[in-house]
Nucleic acid binder design. Sequence first.
DNA 1: TTATTGATTGACTGATCAATCAATAAACGG
DNA 2: CCGTTTATTGATTGATCAGTCAATCAATAA
Lengths: 195, 195
Amino acid sequence: MPKLGMEPVRRRALIGAAVEAIHEHGFCEVTMGQIAARAGVSAGLAHHYFGSKEQLLTATMRHLLSELGAEIVSRLSRAEGPRQRVSAVIAGNFAPGQFRPAVISAWLAFYVQAESLADARRLHGIYARRLRSNLVHDLARLVSRERAFAVADGAAALVDGIWLRQVLRVGEPDAATAIAMVEDYVALQLERGRM
Amino acid sequence: MPKLGMEPVRRRALIGAAVEAIHEHGFCEVTMGQIAARAGVSAGLAHHYFGSKEQLLTATMRHLLSELGAEIVSRLSRAEGPRQRVSAVIAGNFAPGQFRPAVISAWLAFYVQAESLADARRLHGIYARRLRSNLVHDLARLVSRERAFAVADGAAALVDGIWLRQVLRVGEPDAATAIAMVEDYVALQLERGRM
DNA sequence: TTATTGATTGACTGATCAATCAATAAACGG
DNA sequence: CCGTTTATTGATTGATCAGTCAATCAATAA
């Protein structure tokens, strides 16, 4: 059965399987065997393509962050003016493909890992700085630069908090309510800034 | 050297050591041996008193939640009127003994575990409901019941988000800034509610 | 003094799992 | 068709670690 050019197919499948397997078994408990089985291959093949469990997990984290980033960039490109750009960032953070149980579980697990794993920490840092500078840049066109920092930090904390709390909520995530909550916060802050 | 009545001493030491060891080694990587060594005893003794790693970890989580709860209750008892009570809850969530790196790491790790571990999930649920009902009860005296729910959820998400983001921040946690951020959010929401 | 109980350890075991590797087989290139 | 590359597996290894246990020692009680 061996077809050629399977590498990208397997890599994608394994990364997707890793997200699901982390959700099902928990980050600490999940094994290469479980991930590989979910992707429909042997554990040996997972090692063949990724070298080690840590590298597969790091690739998975990189994938999640880049997908989330892409959602935001795509919405930013359609936004007009700073206020819409802020909304684009907020909505991007709750994009349907991202704000779902398995992704939320994996994302949180990587947050925890980022503390002890240098690679994970670096990736998180890059992503967080980019998000923040995007927000600050646009907010600074609406309020003072000083307040823009405060509002960006507040909005970012609120977004992360909503993701975090979704981990323990039962039932499907409600992106609309989440977005409304953050939009409300930003609107209130901007109103005051204009007074 | 065996003295009598060591059980409570050892239990406390092991729970404290678990928090520190999780912070140092990471939740997934930490072993009973490392925790026991930090507490100055053998791994065998840790099993003797707690039965299993899972039970020691669950006891640690219970301890963290109850300490945080105690900080809030203590501030609530000194508060007068609903507005002060809301502030008491906020300040309690950033009490100096709790809002520090090792505790934050462990707390977040337990959050992740709560997804797959029934015991951890139950504990978290109890704590979260209590916190929420406390907030809603007092907020409902300041704004409509409906808005009280929204503000309580927003404030709780903000608190959790600030804790979460502290995991990756370098340097000592800044409780004062954190409290100011949540107080600002609540103040803004209450102002609107009164309009 | 002599049992009894509680505290404690270090050695042991059994299971798990990441990582390696040799073997196999299909596709392809000449 | 024959050699090379790519894909894939299953068996194996080596390390780690949770959990158990017998043995030891001190304090207390009878």
